[in-house]
Design a protein around this nucleic acid. Structure first.
Length: 470
RNA sequence: GGUGAGGUGGCAGAGCGGCUAUGCGUUCGCCUGCAAAGCGAAUCUAUAGGGGUUCGAAUCCCUUCCUCACCUCCA
């Protein structure tokens, strides 16, 4: 599999020795997650699902930044502890991302649990004279790391020229960044240099090195993390280990709202909670995977509405394929709907699906193939006959693609199922008796519950629509 | 100002030297007791502008214009 590497600006083959190690920069837990976070996380979740579907072992690590100025500020305004704040938003994170059908990572390290490792790193950097202690804290001396700027393609002197960094006399160089900040207020930790808190970037170096080791396969996050976050991570980690930090840097494009990047100051953020309520998990996932991961996507009502249409087709296909005709004998007269006739086309789409993902994770193309399979199924359904043997072939293909994409048909309880069955039977009787008013009443009742009936010539199927709010 | 990514039909979005993706939308049909859903057909020959290279370019080169992101915390 090839992925475009931000560092080398080239597509690189993902090395799969024993396993693929992935580190994703997660969220800072000081507020609700939004659709931008969701996109990055859904992309990586899908990547991980794809690799695993091919039998590749994946170790997937995603951190929580649970100590940070914004968390501290939030705690102050709410008159509570940073701990309470971070715990609250981590809990919410899991509720929301479970709903989005994001598989749990193998590990969710938190910054506050890696203070010791960070101190080790900082010690090492001081020993190598790449970091120094000032009155305010410990700083990384950017000028001592010759490759500084290699990821974001920035030149040090240009950065200085355009620096909007606040003046800090205790720093040797305005570009130097904090590894450890002295602080007497809570929360703080002891360190060999004095009580304080870790700087902004050191946590990810500490956690990734500890959890995944050196030179792991994929390090990722949103595009906006390239500078300074990832640049600084590279500097710290490589200065410390003297080795390559990560093999591939994979960055996900921003989500814009009506063409503009979301930001708190513009007040145009869409929280995950909101979009889940409004569109539901599958539509959000389809939306996030609709374009190439590296490009920006624009959140607009029209786009999401369009996605609903696609998802309806998927639901319809599932309803058909999971309720095939029991009797296969009809097939003898209709060779065009036999498995043998369909198989080559489906195999072709499976190959395309695989190739698309394998080639810089082109989910847009992969979705095309998936929808072609969906079309194929709905086509058969319109011929009024999906035979059991055909469904037996198609269902696993459909399911495989659904699993990789992380899509999930709404589940239904046994009781619901029985009740719906009974109502459909009653409706059939009414229809046979030409009591259409009564029959339509039942249809309306079911629709109110999100159940859509699919009338075929001899029988009625139904599907449960994903709940879409407004 | 610097760096990076882009500019493709009404919209979304692939292709990245030749066989004019695809989807949504729209229109008209089929199906139906009527719907819904589904299916079929039609519709749209697009590649920011200008130069090249080539037998041939959306695809390569040069140039102009425009958009977005990053350069401050940000997924």
């Amino acid at each position: 599999m090839k992925i475009f590497d931000t560092l080398s600006q080239k597509e690189k083959e993902v090395v799969k020795n024993n396993m693929v190690r992935i580190y994703l920069c997660g969220v800072t837990v000081y507020d609700d997650s939004h659709i931008g976070h969701a996109r990055t996380i859904i992309v990586f979740d899908t990547l991980r699902r794809f690799l695993e579907s091919e039998g590749t072992k994946v170790k997937f690590v995603q951190n929580f930044t649970d100590i940070d100025d914004k968390i501290i500020n939030r705690a102050r305004t709410e008159n509570t502890s940073t701990d309470k704040i971070s715990t609250r938003y981590i809990d919410r994170y899991f509720v929301e991302f479970d709903k989005l059908n994001v598989k749990r990572a193998d590990s969710y390290p938190k910054a506050t649990e890696y203070i010791e490792k960070m101190i080790d790193l900082i010690k090492g950097l001081i020993d190598k004279e790449i970091a120094y202690v000032s009155n305010n804290g410990v700083y990384f001396a950017v000028s001592k790391f010759k490759d500084y700027g290699k990821l974001s393609k920035k030149k040090i002197d240009e950065l200085i020229a355009g620096a909007r960094v606040e003046v800090d006399e205790t720093k040797h160089d305005p570009l130097d960044f904090a590894l450890w900040k002295f602080a007497n207020d809570q929360p703080n930790w002891d360190s060999p240099w004095g009580k304080g808190r870790p700087g902004w970037h050191i946590e990810c170096s500490a956690m990734s090195l500890e959890e995944l080791g050196n030179d792991f396969e994929i390090h990722g996050g949103g595009r906006d993390l390239i500078f300074p976050h990832h640049e600084n991570e590279i500097a710290q980690s490589e200065a410390f280990t003297g080795q390559n930090f990560a093999k591939i840097w994979m960055h996900v494009g921003m989500v814009t709202i009506d063409g503009v990047k979301m930001s708190k100051s513009l007040g145009n953020t869409k929280t995950v909670e909101y979009v889940l309520q409004k569109w539901g998990p599958n539509i959000i996932r389809l939306f996030c995977l609709a374009g190439h991961y590296s490009k920006p996507i624009d959140y607009s009502e029209d786009m999401l509405k369009e996605t609903i249409t696609k998802w309806r087709q998927v639901e319809n296909a599932y309803a058909e394929i999971s309720n095939p005709e029991k009797d296969d004998t009809v097939l003898l007269q209709h060779p065009n709907i036999m498995e043998k006739a369909i198989r080559p086309r489906i195999e072709e789409e499976l190959n395309r699906f695989h190739d698309a993902l394998n080639n810089d994770f082109n989910t847009s193309l992969a979705l095309n193939s998936f929808f072609s399979v969906v079309d194929e199924i709905n086509n058969l359904a319109s011929a009024e006959y999906i035979a059991k043997s055909v469904a037996g072939y198609l269902l696993p293909v459909f399911t495989k693609m659904m699993n990789i994409l992380g899509l999930k048909i709404s589940e239904i309880t046994k009781e619901e199922n029985d009740e719906i069955g009974k109502m459909i039977e009653r409706r059939k009787i009414f229809r046979d008796e030409k009591r259409y008013q009564d029959a339509d009443n039942i249809r309306k009742q079911l629709l109110d519950k999100g159940i859509i009936l699919i009338d075929h010539k001899k029988r009625t199927l139904w599907m449960k629509q994903e709940n879409i709010g407004n």
